[in-house]
Design a protein around this nucleic acid. Structure first.
Length: 261
DNA sequence: CGTATATGGATAC
DNA sequence: TATCCCTATACGT
């Protein structure tokens, strides 16, 4: 679930439920209990998404940090606590209960702590302050494979393994190509595409990158098809067997035919 | 019941 | 580069 679109979707969903309210903060599972006590009963002033990070600005000046990692998940209930799951953090108002399980990080810190983390993030395509030129500059000056850079949160914040593969496919770029062998126009187009993909992900609440205009006319889609190359056996466009190359420590799926060296 | 897998990332070497 | 952590789910036995 969690690439940047998930985080921005969560901020939009949780804000009307929790912001400007006094929130009971607890940790049924226990590991967040000491931190929870620091903000329990405070008014939540703002929920801020940035890349794959989520910050909770509390009325007493403290700032909660959540990073879902690979397994983290929020469950929202308006009818009572959802049992059965290990709940690291519970945010409760009279109207709603928000349960967080499995995060890589869930902690309470200061605004400075938040700033230090944001300082090492690249621009986020889903934020108003996300600047295309900044991301292009960060990529263009390096000869690192573009597939590695797109996964590097200090270059662009919010892209994960699915969007990286899909956006490179859409532009016909082999993931191992050194970033500085791309043109500025090309990299700008990659930014624009991934921003559009992420926005669609926020709207749909899931990743669907397929654009029928990029497929041969008459190509039949199977139920559940959502990507061109990610986690597929064969390319959705040309049926060539999909390859993978490990970049940034994780397999990057690509079509050897549509994305030649 | 066990095992494999997953859209992430920090840390140790 | 390797290892570990966090959790849920799908699937095989």
């Amino acid at each position: 679930m969690p690439e940047g679109h998930t985080i921005h979707r969560l901020a939009a969903d949780l804000t009307p439920l929790l912001v400007d309210r006094m929130v009971a903060v607890s940790s049924p599972q226990g590991r967040f209990a000491a931190d929870a006590a620091l903000v329990d009963g405070c008014v939540l002033e703002r929920i801020e998404p940035y890349g794959k990070h989520l910050w909770f600005w509390w009325g007493n000046g403290l700032v909660g940090h959540v990073h879902l990692g690979l397994f983290g998940r929020f469950r929202i209930s308006t009818t009572g606590p959802s049992s059965r799951h290990a709940v690291r953090m519970r945010l409760a108002t009279p109207e709603a209960i928000v349960d967080l399980s499995g995060p890589t990080d869930c902690s309470i810190g200061t605004a400075d702590d938040r700033d230090r983390i944001v300082a090492r993030l690249g621009p986020d395509p889903l934020r108003r302050d996300g600047r295309q030129e900044e991301a292009v500059a960060r990529m263009l000056r390096r000869r690192t494979p573009i597939g590695t850079l797109l996964l590097d949160q200090s270059v662009v914040a919010g892209i994960g393994n699915v969007y990286r593969a899909e956006v490179l496919f859409v532009h016909g770029i082999h993931p191992a190509r050194p970033a500085n062998e791309c043109t500025a126009d090309e990299l700008g187009a990659v930014w624009d595409s991934v921003r559009a993909m992420l926005r669609k992900g926020v709207r749909d609440r899931r990743i669907v990158t397929i654009d029928r205009r990029l497929l041969p006319t008459g190509r039949r889609l199977r139920r559940g098809d959502s990507t061109f190359v990610y986690h597929r056996e064969r390319c959705l466009r040309c049926d060539t067997p999909i390859g993978t190359v490990t970049l940034g420590g994780r397999p990057c799926y690509f079509c050897p035919s549509c994305q030649p060296h």
